[in-house]
Design a protein around this nucleic acid. Structure first.
Lengths: 128, 128
DNA sequence: TACAGTAACTTTAAATTTTAAAGTTTCTAG
DNA sequence: CTAGAAACTTTAAAATTTAAAGTTACTGTA
């Protein structure tokens, strides 16, 4: 069977350049912060709110919706009455891990006072 | 001698997370497009304008100024009368190459119809 | 000498996005 | 019956982005 690429960009791509296309999906101030949180074990709205960057809640809701539409994350109910959703990464979302690891390597080398991520994060592999 | 980290973020960092800090520097819709162009041999204002994404010229000027202040790029006059500047990457800017390469790998794997970058780009190394 | 053209910006005004803050809904616990 | 929590939504102001036109300082051609 042929592998199917899974992402939806919404028809507003600036070009077919892989860099421009990626930025059209996650190239804003908050998406990669959310993906970082999802990769490090956060799954719920409140947990994203608690991250030190302080995303505005309306943007958080908007980003979760957009990333879901684009196939980067999915949500599943973890309780009903009232129904509440837990968010997780799709395979495409998890595959952004090496990008985030490279970003961390760059930041640690060139920006002062950036946290060194735990070795568990830097050694993670997408399939896990 | 101790190695000195070179980047200026402007005191508006959201946190010391390496990912958040990197996004505070290049996490907008145009900066990585410019860095891509600089990595692939473009150096002048008009060449950046000609890229298929079509950056608005006022944003181009603003980004060039901001990236220069942050230590990602430098400019040098390539003629006087009238003075015109050619832009290039600093070592910190060139060191973003592996990040862009990872982004290309991700896009080619998960977004349909993205261009495959030339092997010369994917095989480049930062020091070169 | 006049005029078109080029490179690199800057200015402007409208449209869009982001932000901070407060409000809403649906439930549980005491 | 009241307080509290989780997950959003709404609102209005502020900031940013966009498209388009304008500016400056030259060069090359007629």
């Amino acid at each position: 069977m042929a592998k199917t690429k899974s992402l939806v960009s919404g028809g507003r791509e600036r070009s077919s350049c892989p860099i421009a296309s990626t930025l059209d999906i996650v190239g804003d101030k908050w998406s990669l912060i959310l993906i970082r949180d999802l990769l490090t074990g956060k799954h719920r709205y409140n947990q994203f709110c608690d991250s030190p960057e302080g995303v505005p809640t309306n943007l958080l809701a908007a980003r979760l919706r957009k990333l879901e539409q684009q196939g980067i994350i999915t949500k599943e109910p973890y309780q009903s009455r009232p129904v509440r959703y837990a968010y997780s990464l799709t395979p495409a979302g998890r595959a952004l891990l090496p990008v985030l690891q490279e970003i961390c390597r760059w930041a640690n080398a060139y920006i002062e006072d950036t946290w060194k991520p735990p070795e568990t994060f830097m050694a993670m592999k997408p399939k896990t």
